[in-house]
Design a protein around this nucleic acid. Structure first.
Lengths: 342, 342
DNA sequence: GGTGAGGGCTAAAACGATTTAGTCGGCTTT
DNA sequence: AAAGCCGACTAAATCGTTTTAGCCCTCACC
């Protein structure tokens, strides 16, 4: 049983391929095909189980109705949820999404863009790595719209971005901790030059400044980027051995670091929140279910996904019109979810 | 800046498109293209930043080097990990995977198969829904190989499947519980006719039989398939209110049910393992980090992914040769991971 | 000097659709 | 009755590749 093509239908229905094409694309009326022929063709197509070949269609029209989604790691809960929301939203526009993970590897990211470009996706939604801006500019120059998510390039406002308001989110968290009387607040972050993380750290420092508290380097732990699970655990363990004596609260700046933190807290048997108040940026099932449950700054993941898709669709609609307007990244507000850990 | 095609290169290098094609596909030597022409073409291609259009290539060759992966829900940790392992493994064969979630909706599954078929994927790896066998047979009849994962159709051995040995895994878990002296063991499962779950339940019953223990219906909770989070919580809550008095151990038959169980255990403040021993089929980060940590029967996810891909590649290699040999599903052994909950 | 055998390349068909520019016969219109 | 128009279709080009069949040249050989 072979695939049936438009010309198989044409032959069987005794009409030309053009006619079949018009009927299949609802252009029959515009092309003044008669009622009877339309029905004839539709019937034959149904009988034969015709399904248009999207490769051929894409080749001819130059549009594949597909968007490429590149995230850091699809098996991370945050990105998985984001991906799902993007997929669902895209479907509402009748677009399909194909996703890939960079594992935060610059070279891999470039390869993926390449691969997606070869497969002729119409546009991209990307969690960029540090030095990707130039490649993304090239994409845009080829009339392939790009929307960044989760991260952005402050120096490249011609690439639209949708993300949480990191500065505001961390500020809110800090005010909450400070308001509860904690003044010796440790910070666990990840080593990166990317702006979104810098914003989070800046918010931490500014909050302490506002309250006339000194920023102490020994309170800050920067986990190196490529450290494996063991090494990262080690880092956090070192910091947290000072819990309760050197500092009285800890703020984890990412989901992943928070989970790591829990693992260490469990191992060191630190009492939360008596010895140590805990707050984490970004939610996770574990935080909700852990005892004590962990308070978090929650990103509006669904909203980010939806806004990213609608922004991309917008660009897709105006593709070809040259002047791409520069605009500041869209920054959505985070929620503070209060639980038992503080 | 427009895309550059093979004929742009041909023009610039002063040769024919065929020649360029041969060079780009390493067929230059076989086609006796001279050293100089090869170099010339390669240089021009590099300079112009040529990337083959995979749509055109796929249209011509009938192969897209793409495999379609359909899982139940990509944002579930089990499937996310499985998907990642399949993607990584596929890359080793130089294949790309595009994934989709059925949300366990039969109709959606059919739509997805349709969509992937229109996009001309070369083969499929699928977590099937109950009545999908017929559709899958049709795919195979179109020479599109299919490999099932996680689930299988006992009545259709012509569709290869790769999954954990469910019966053996649950048996092992039951022997462990029984060996520790627990005899009143509750079971939480999900309502489904699918064979893999039936195998798990059968293993539970057989184990009790072997130990001359009566299977009691009030010990078994079947969560309806389409219940939302609240309703499911309700079900489990009802069962677990008997914990410690009516029964002394509980075996959750899926990842998702186990997480639900933890939520209820936390709410009801059940002491684990003093009041209730807990075991779950299938691991999850939460089980490792929860206090007390939860013992599990762990599926060899990586191995399942790898075996599924290699099985598919095998079929792909022999596509066209009619007689598809029937063979029993490949069933991989699960591990018992002992933690604090029993 | 005609024949055959490579060597080095190209022409053109094909994949399955979309889309532009007709064709053709009958009916109005003047 | 010639010209134009309209309704209902179709022919053929096109998208970017791959691949088969061949073309033309040079050289060896008898």
């Amino acid at each position: 049983m072979k695939k049936v093509s438009i010309s198989d239908i044409a032959r069987k229905a005794g009409v030309s391929v053009s006619t079949v094409s018009f009927v299949m694309n609802d252009k029959a009326v515009k092309m003044r095909i008669s009622r009877e022929v339309i029905e004839k063709v539709e019937n034959v197509a149904r009988e034969m189980g015709y399904r248009p070949n999207q490769l051929a269609r894409g080749l001819r029209t130059g549009k594949t109705k597909t968007i490429g989604l590149i995230v850091e790691n699809i098996s991370n809960a945050f990105f998985a949820t984001l991906a799902k929301s993007i997929e669902d939203e895209a479907k509402r526009y009748d677009y399909k999404v194909v996703y890939c993970s960079t594992d935060n590897d610059e070279e891999k990211a470039r390869d993926l863009i390449n691969m997606l470009s070869q497969r002729q996706v119409d546009g991209y939604i990307i969690t960029p790595t540090l030095n990707l801006a130039e490649d993304l500019r090239k994409l845009q120059a080829e009339s392939k719209p790009v929307v960044l998510i989760d991260r952005y390039f402050p120096a490249h406002t011609e690439i639209p971005a949708v993300l949480v308001d990191n500065y505001e989110g961390v500020s809110r968290g800090m005010e909450y901790l400070l308001g509860k009387g904690y003044s010796r607040i440790a910070l666990v972050t990840i080593e990166t030059e990317m702006a979104h993380m810098k914003d989070r750290v800046r918010a931490y420092r500014d909050a302490l400044d506002r309250h006339r508290l000194e920023v102490q380097d020994r309170f800050i732990r920067i986990v190196p980027y490529n450290s494996d699970h063991e090494a990262a655990l080690q880092e956090v363990t070192q910091l947290l051995s000072g819990a309760g004596v050197v500092f009285d609260a800890v703020f984890f700046l990412t989901n992943y670091l928070g989970v790591l933190g829990i693992e260490v807290i469990k191992k060191l048997q630190i009492k939360v929140p008596e010895q140590l108040a805990v707050l984490c940026f970004d939610d996770n099932d574990i935080f909700r279910l852990y005892t004590p449950s962990i308070s978090v700054i929650r990103q509006p993941i669904e909203a980010i996904g939806q806004k990213a898709v609608s922004t991309l669709m917008d660009r897709l609609r105006h593709v070809g019109e040259d002047s791409v307007p520069a605009n500041a990244p869209v920054q959505l507000q985070a929620d503070l979810v209060k639980r038992e850990s503080i």
